[in-house]
Nucleic acid binder design. Sequence first.
DNA 1: CTTCATGCAAATAATTTGCAGTAAG
DNA 2: CTTACTGCAAATTATTTGCATGAAG
Lengths: 140, 140
Amino acid sequence: MTDYAELLKKSSLKATFQRMNILSVVDKYGHMSVDDIYAEVVKVYPSLSLATVYKNIILMVEKGVLVEVPIVGKKSKYELAKEDHIHLVCTECGAVEDKMCLEKTDALFHHLSEEEHFSLNRRQVNLYGVCQKCQMEAAS
Amino acid sequence: MTDYAELLKKSSLKATFQRMNILSVVDKYGHMSVDDIYAEVVKVYPSLSLATVYKNIILMVEKGVLVEVPIVGKKSKYELAKEDHIHLVCTECGAVEDKMCLEKTDALFHHLSEEEHFSLNRRQVNLYGVCQKCQMEAAS
DNA sequence: CTTCATGCAAATAATTTGCAGTAAG
DNA sequence: CTTACTGCAAATTATTTGCATGAAG
């Protein structure tokens, strides 16, 4: 995933420097809040406005380029849209790790939805706990 | 679940009229935002302050009496703490339905966590789609 | 009584908006 | 060229705080 210009064009959005860089940092860091994104991009583009970040995140979520990841007790983070997966959220360090597991959860969620005659569009799974790194640090 | 006074006492919180009513409306409606809660409780207690609702929600979440349910594109809702379950979120009408299914998801989530050496504490599953009621209305 | 909770008003934080100037296609 | 995008500043909305009063145990 490196051709952000192409990605934007497909969504009928102009490929501005600001947008390219928003996508780039989100791609690089995986999951970022609005403020995280602003803080990173402003480093390479000092005249960036926070309002621009807000406007673009809203737009790119609408267009399906970005996905919102709401997190208990924090502000939402955003990630690039990609194949369904779950999030392992560390309550110690705040890190969010993706775990691809479509094949394992897909059937289950469809089954549960059908039981309720619910027409399923999108799933969103967060598991909260302590990541391996923080467990090791706590043990020392 | 009707003895809210008992529930509060166990969490070392005073059983005020405000708190009892917050718990009562959340219990009755299932999932409510801060504003929803305020709007309901102020009906029976007109001098209620929104600040009190905020303070109490924060407190009761800390004490484990309430649970935050973050929802894509909206403000978080809150529900009474209870056995793990998933949420079916209707993107048409906004309704959130609980579906108890611990026995079906528990093993899977533990398995996925172990693969990453992740110490699992809490899970949070939202399925987004269209509820039966809205599907029928759309068809007519 | 004593401590904790409430309501109010003010402070702060988060998000959105309007608009004149700029850049992308 | 033309339309869409940006940055700014102001407006709005959301949340938090401090403090004097009031209620719970």
